[in-house]
Simulated scan of single mutants.
Amino acid sequence: MEPLVDIVIEDDRWQAFGLETLAEPAVRAAFAELGLPEAGFTLCLMGCNDARILELNGDFRGKAKPTNVLSWPSEERGADAGEVPDLPDPGAADDPESLGDIAISYDTCAREAAEAGKPMADHVTHLIVHGLLHLLGYDHIRAVDGDLMESTEVRILARLGLSDPY
């Protein structure tokens, strides 16, 4: 089966950590929970560091600080308050639908996992799922949408045997 996730490593610590081994199962679990087929979609996940994500956060969100994960959906897929976003249709096997791009910072992930006393792999898996849901139109700007996004994340993580991160 073709990989769903194109991995771009900008910080070698992600290679040693095994970002790719976490990404595929996380995305596949999310697709299963949402009823999306595994074939016909692709996305890009970039593993970077705080310096790079700081630059991206400044450029795209106007925020002068690093963050754990950023996402850039290929299309606007938002929904009305509290509604599940319209999910995309898959592309052809030789021309999959691009969902967009996600960037994740090693430094911030490692720090947050240590502060929360949880395995970094669990935290990174959660953030991959979180970023993917943003690509699919979920957000947490309004409280009702945040509740929907969090409950969806919890169900996806449960499929992977991970506990509620909230």
Rank of each mutant, 00 (worst) to 15 (best):
G100V: 03
F41C: 03
R13A: 09
P96H: 08
M1T: 14
P37A: 02
L87H: 06
H130C: 01
P73A: 04
Y106D: 04
D89S: 14
L43S: 07
D59A: 15
E20Q: 14
I53L: 12
D164H: 11
G146S: 04
L135T: 05
H123D: 04
C48P: 01
H130A: 05
G117H: 11
G78F: 06
L157A: 01
E75C: 09
R159P: 01
G62T: 12
V84K: 14
E33D: 13
L135Q: 08
D139H: 13
V154C: 04
P165E: 05
A64L: 12
A81R: 12
P88S: 10
W72I: 00
P3M: 04
K65E: 13
E33R: 10
V129S: 07
T152I: 01
P165L: 02
D94G: 07
L135A: 03
D122F: 09
E2P: 14
E97H: 15
D11T: 04
H130V: 00
S98A: 15
M1Y: 12
E97L: 12
V144M: 01
T67Y: 10
E75N: 06
V27Q: 06
P37R: 09
L54A: 12
D86L: 13
E75P: 00
A113D: 08
M149D: 07
T42A: 13
F41M: 01
N68H: 08
A93R: 10
L4D: 00
G58I: 03
H126K: 06
A30Y: 05
A114W: 00
E97Q: 15
G40L: 03
E153L: 06
L127E: 08
D95W: 02
G131R: 04
T67Q: 10
L19N: 05
D59M: 13
W72C: 03
D50S: 09
R52Q: 13
P85Q: 10
P96K: 10
S151K: 15
E20N: 10
P90E: 09
